[in-house]
Design a protein around this nucleic acid. Structure first.
Lengths: 133, 133
DNA sequence: TTAAAATACGACTATATTAGTCCGATTTAG
DNA sequence: CTAAATCGGACTAATATAGTCGTATTTTAA
């Protein structure tokens, strides 16, 4: 089957933990210890989520992150696009590169593939962090 | 977004071509030429589909493949599992390896992830080659 | 004012997966 | 017998993902 990247998986784990946690601020170290996620990797993920305003961060010795959005407002679609990029379900459907595909004109599966992708996007958009809580 | 592997993509292209083609037998070379798919790679894909009885094959100089199933009986789910394996949407959910995951007991996203996977499986099962024709 | 512990950021390396190739064998019509 | 096809496995190349490292900055508290 199709697989979520570790970045997406770790994001879900972390965001769920933020969602259920009482503490206002949580550190990357705390979460990486709890879930055995490589610290440096999780740190970058949280930094990225912070840059996207999904989390807010405090620097300094008592710093950390906290949720800045409702879990029901954070979709899987958003997280996947954030970490895995906007790439399409097949190489062709990469936004601008469609015309570059060498069989583009006679490609017979283009339209149904685009439909497939749209349906998956709708599905992943409908899945929110709150569905994991 | 989530991406189909080339093997799956080429399978869809080839199977659709079988579905719409008048010829009874088509060769790997013919299809690989038409769609600019590496011949050796497509050959292996067709061999695999043949082994699965989705195609039937004739060896020898006038050989080739033809469809052995209705396009409406060949699901995307089947093709994906065939070429990409049974791996789950996350590493944990690899059939037997679930218990091996080091955070399995306190993994908090297990159930919703399994639900996600089931839903995707149902979705891909519902997509047939006939939907691409 | 200094040390410790956190975020921030970018470059780098390692690993795994996917894509594609190569070689040799077998089959079969002409 | 030969050409052209399927068959099957081992191999290589390319790409993508996962994870690491080093360094800077911020902030609190001793």
């Amino acid at each position: 089957m199709i697989r979520l990247s570790k970045k997406v998986e770790y994001s879900i784990i972390a965001l769920k933990y933020f969602a259920i946690s009482k503490e206002t601020y949580l550190t990357a170290k705390e979460i990486s210890n709890k879930y055995k996620i490589p610290h440096e990797l999780l740190a970058k993920i949280l930094q990225r989520l912070s840059k996207e305003k999904i989390l807010t961060s405090n620097q300094g010795i008592n710093g950390g992150y906290k949720l800045n959005k409702q879990p029901s407002d954070i979709s899987l679609e958003y997280i996947i696009k954030l970490f895995d990029g906007e790439k399409g379900i097949v190489e062709c459907i990469n936004g601008k590169s469609a015309g570059e595909c060498c069989i583009f004109d006679e490609c017979t599966i283009k339209d149904p593939i685009i439909k497939l992708q749209k349906e998956l996007e709708i599905y992943f958009s409908s899945k929110k962090i709150s569905d994991f809580v």
